[in-house]
Amino acid sequence: MSLKGRHLIDPNDFTMEELNEIFNLADRMVEERDAFGEICKGKILGTLFYEPSTRTRLSFESAMLRMGGKVLGFSDAGTSSVSKGESIADTIRVLSSYADVMVMRHPKEGAPKLASEYSFIPVINGGDGGHQHPTQTLTDMLTIRRYKGTLENQTIAFCGDLKFGRTVHSLISALSNYKGSKFVLISPAELRLPGHLKSSLLEKHNVSIYETESLEEVINQIDVLYMTRIQKERFFNEADYMRLKDSYILDRHKLKDSKEDMLVMHPLPRVNEISYDVDDDKRAIYFKQAELGIYVRMALIALLLGVNVNAYS
């Protein structure tokens, strides 16, 4: 099934073959970016950002501009017709005739899904509350695939806030479709992966899951270490926070026991969970990861638009 005209609301909207199609095109775009500089000429990306998001919005805009397309939209609901009380349905119906593909970020969970029911053009979920952020997941998957050569047979550790972190939920769910995936979950007891998600992973995919509070205990067995930020307010009491806060900060000292080819990833922005002294280590690829986010969004937009990706290469 072609990706042309489809929506991306949840990473599971696409099959593994369709995801591969996106990643293969993104790989080509990384290798010869200039060859794709005109493929979206005459096309418009609508950016509907109902809440501020510098990083995601700019990466989408950059992706479209790098393919010769144009961008229009709003980056704050206060400056749009939304502030006059217009419904999502009406905004989407109108925007559908102004653009060829749209990305929507909204604080209400399920808003992009609702938008897709009224839209005549493809809708990309750019993050809906604590629910999904599928293009971050695609970015993470492309990064692992490029650096490890495959998404199969990887031991992937998630460290930090695994309870509320939507990037973790989306990525772990997507990776569980790949054979040989092993997950190591490093978090304080209060911030463990939600039970319903864990049981669904174990029931549906029969994956291996190991839970621990200690990063040091497992760091030598990991292929990919996905760090996330822990907010102090997520802890139930101050004593636990003081006891555990340092154990989720990655520094050069902890890194010395890890595999030579381990990848350190982070969805960014980081606060203090990765020391700056790690940035120079070859295992630290979080800035490369952010860069790959542009390419995966370029590939996604091009395929949803159905433009000829072979015309210029």
């Binding site: 419904s87 999502i88 349905a89 909204h106 209400k108 969970e109 399920g110 808003a111 899904k113 609702l114 809906d128 509350g129 629910h131 319903h196 049981s199 669904s200």
Partner: peptide
């Protein structure tokens, strides 16, 4: 979102989790 926009009809699919009957929201 279905709790905010009054024209939205909440839609659910049946799921069974831990032997109990639940409905999964089509939106969130």
């Amino acid at each position: 979102v279905s709790n905010f926009d009054e024209y939205v009809t909440p839609k659910f699919r049946l799921v069974k989790a831990n032997g109990k009957i639940h409905y999964r929201c089509n939106y969130c």
